[in-house]
Design a binder for these strands. Structure first.
Length: 439
RNA sequence: GGUAGUGUGUCUGAGUGGCCGAAAGAGCACGCCUCGAAAGCGUGUGCACGGUAAUACGUGUCUAGGGUUCGAAUCCCUACACUACCGCCA
């Protein structure tokens, strides 16, 4: 939720932000009017209420003889107050429900839609498979070759866009998570295994509202929880209604959780393999920061993501996402996208957003500044590692014979494996991939 | 799932219809004392919104939402949470 103060004091900045996102700025003008109406009605109610309180107070002190007369007048007042309150509440509800539809005010993001991102940086070199003398295979073919991915049985068991990670695939997943957690620890994050079912107010507080029905799983009645698509949701709610001490730096958490996404709006997109799936695992960075810490923390998150991708020796680029492609909570978002040789395009591996005060406002998470004043906290989130990395890993590190090179920094998390060899038979242990470091 | 109890400010905790935004203590801030600190003493100390040049002032807030009443921390209902016991279960 955006700050009402900004709406009152500089609605122009919100208008501009909405325009950059490709939204109709008329909604902002309407909100300004609604806010004034709402405030006016609130004042009227409060005046009446003050009068009622004053008169009611006299009842207790009055002599028995005059008490009855006073009660008569307060009775009349009480019904007026009731009416004024109803009018005021109604105006407030209308205002807040419309206010909550306004997305966060952007912070330097380029304006425009999905294609209007800025490329900030390109890291590493794309491999030249022609020069190497073979046609690259895609991640699914490779994954099946080393018996790491089984989408057929995934579909049999759960439906399309589900998969099994088998043998070395399952080990890759655990290794990646372990590497992420170890790296997070080195950088002052507290690892957290989070709930993946959350109450509706946590879901909407984090900025995932019912508007996103086609993206979100929800429990059947009478259970009201949502399945979260990222541990960001649980971590954004973790400090709900709390006042944090951020005087010694940001509060950093690394959420480890399974993530669930309906992907109902993405028919026909990324249908092959495990690029876009309903369920995956993720290590997610999440930070609470003061106003002055927030942008630096966002940059730090981007740095952590780049470092992690470098550990896997993947070629990638960093983009500054355009306003129209930001989530409603984000004021700015950087994505790291790995090169996908078989599709001749980049694929999003990480995403880090600065949500400024948008999430924390509804969660009522605050901190005290140097003067002891309470202020709404800023939240920053970012992917540290996730199942999708397997796709980029397989495609970029494949060798002519279908084996997969394991980057040095990653080996210790994978039992010392240097190369993953294709295997004929399904094999749940490492014996089928026996090239171990040092041997 | 059932029954019972509990839910008060940063924390502990008093408060059973008007004198309660709330005793007391702790914590915190400031001052005195001290070379400095601790102890001691004194003063102050919630939040949100409206309002003001700033004060003043007003409204709301004792888990949340309803209700009763002229008036609710206090009485009633519902939800949520916690605790205990029972049941069930990995």
């Amino acid at each position: 939720m955006i700050d009402v103060k900004i709406l009152r004091e500089s609605p122009e900045s919100i208008r501009e932000s909405q325009i950059a996102r490709g939204e109709d700025p008329k909604a902002v003008d309407e909100l300004v009017k609604l806010e004034a109406v709402q405030r006016d009605l609130l004042q009227k109610y409060e005046e009446l209420r003050a009068e009622q309180n004053a008169v009611s107070k006299k009842v207790g002190q009055a002599e028995a003889s005059e008490r009855q007369a006073i009660i008569e007048t307060t009775k009349r007042l009480a019904s007026e107050v009731q009416q004024a309150k109803e009018a005021s509440d109604k105006a407030r509800d209308e205002f807040t429900s419309k206010l909550s539809l306004i997305q966060n005010v952007i912070l330097g993001a380029p304006s425009g839609g999905e294609e209007d991102y800025n490329v900030l940086e390109t890291v590493g070199n794309k491999r030249d498979f022609k020069a190497e003398g073979f046609e690259p295979k895609d991640h699914l073919e490779l994954g099946e070759g080393i018996k790491a991915i089984d989408v057929e049985r995934g579909a049999k068991i759960s439906g399309t866009r589900f998969y099994f990670l088998t043998g070395i695939g399952a080990r890759f997943e655990l290794a990646l998570i372990n590497m992420g957690v170890e790296y997070a620890l080195e950088n002052g994050f507290t690892p957290m295994v989070t709930p993946t079912l959350v109450r509706p107010e946590i879901m909407s507080g984090a900025g995932f509202t019912d508007r996103h029905d086609d993206e979100i799983y929800r429990m059947r009645e009478p259970d009201e929880q949502y399945l979260t698509g990222t541990s960001e949701v649980a971590l954004a709610g973790y400090h709900k209604d709390e006042i944090l001490d951020l005087s010694r730096g940001t509060k950093r958490y690394a959420g480890i959780s399974t993530c669930y996404r309906r992907e109902a709006g993405s028919h026909g997109k990324d249908v092959r393999g495990i690029i876009r799936v309903h369920q995956f695992n993720k290590v997610e960075m999440f930070s609470y920061a003061t106003e002055s810490q927030a942008e630096a923390e966002h940059q730090a998150f981007l740095g952590f993501e780049k470092a992690m991708i470098n550990k896997l020796e993947l070629p990638f680029r960093v983009i500054d996402t355009a306003a129209g492609d930001l989530g409603s909570s984000a004021a700015r978002k950087f994505d790291c996208e790995a090169w996908l040789p078989t599709q001749n395009r980049y694929l999003e591996l990480t995403s880090t957003s600065n949500c400024t005060t948008f999430q924390a406002r509804r969660m009522n998470t605050r901190y005290r500044d140097q003067n002891g004043k309470t202020k709404t906290a800023n939240t920053i989130n970012g992917t540290l590692a996730t199942t999708r990395w397997l796709v980029a890993f397989l495609e970029n590190h494949q060798q002519k014979d279908g084996s997969i090179y394991v980057p040095k920094a990653f080996r210790k998390f994978l039992g010392g494996l240097e190369v993953i060899e294709p295997v004929k038979d399904f094999c749940a242990n490492a014996k089928g991939h026996a090239k171990v470091e040092g041997k």
